[in-house]
Design a protein around this nucleic acid. Sequence first.
DNA 1: TAGCAAATGAGAATCATTTGCAAAAAGGAG
DNA 2: CTCCTTTTTGCAAATGATTCTCATTTGCTA
Lengths: 142, 142
Amino acid sequence: MTERLVSMLRASDLRVTRQRQLVWEVLQQSHEHLDAEAVHTCAKARDPNISLATVYRTLATLKEVGLVEEHRLGEEHAHFEIVPQTPHYHFTCQACGCIIEFDAPQVMQAVRELSKREDLLIQHVHLFLNGLCSQCQHQQEG
Amino acid sequence: MTERLVSMLRASDLRVTRQRQLVWEVLQQSHEHLDAEAVHTCAKARDPNISLATVYRTLATLKEVGLVEEHRLGEEHAHFEIVPQTPHYHFTCQACGCIIEFDAPQVMQAVRELSKREDLLIQHVHLFLNGLCSQCQHQQEG
DNA sequence: TAGCAAATGAGAATCATTTGCAAAAAGGAG
DNA sequence: CTCCTTTTTGCAAATGATTCTCATTTGCTA
């Protein structure tokens, strides 16, 4: 599990620290999309001394190394997840905040066409939808 | 030009103020994607007293009323633009920061399929790509 | 035109994130 | 295993973006 982390860090001449492993494990064990604060909270359960600054630094590092993705799902703060095998996108319900992940091959196809047409090197593709989920649509009371 | 603003504000029982008109005109006259600071700067050229807080408030209002869209193009701060007739998406170059707008009908098609399959009410669709634009790819020097 | 609620300006406050710096820890060499 | 150099960390202060507070001003309706 942690091999992927170790090899990616080594490949970039970065040290394998307890904190980096911890953040990585937190992200692996949670299949949700955590924000930095939530990662910090989970990490503190196992290392009460880990600081929020380190969490931010680590998330940035993991992102640079290509292990983690950052999403701006609401408007507010960022959420993080381990880079998935198959790319996927996100829908967020504005009422209950639930997140639905989905894939749609047409999107990558469209991106490929654009990238060829405009000669762009595409590094990240973020598709983010919001609106109301099934449940929240059907319970319109206050 | 300003009719659209006036009717939308009236429809929501909001007042038509000098500041709201000014922000609206700034957005119309600039075909770029301005951030709040930039809108403020432009607006101050015509009303030196307009405050940044009012710009933020006005952008939020215009967004609620459906006249303006907010985008998180980089990671940092928000950019705003008048809701376009035809929906479109954004590519940002990580090197030079240029923004390319594009459309791709496949995206809306994919979104429609998802929304039907999962019974979602979709309100906003954000597709955001980043990477390197043609120019920046081909000038790899420091 | 008067009166009231909504909107503004200015600055303080808040939230998320970053940074500076001294102390702690990782990893290579001996 | 220990030493040394360099990277990381923790903490707290700094920053940047955005929001809020509140006294004052301004739209709009009667």
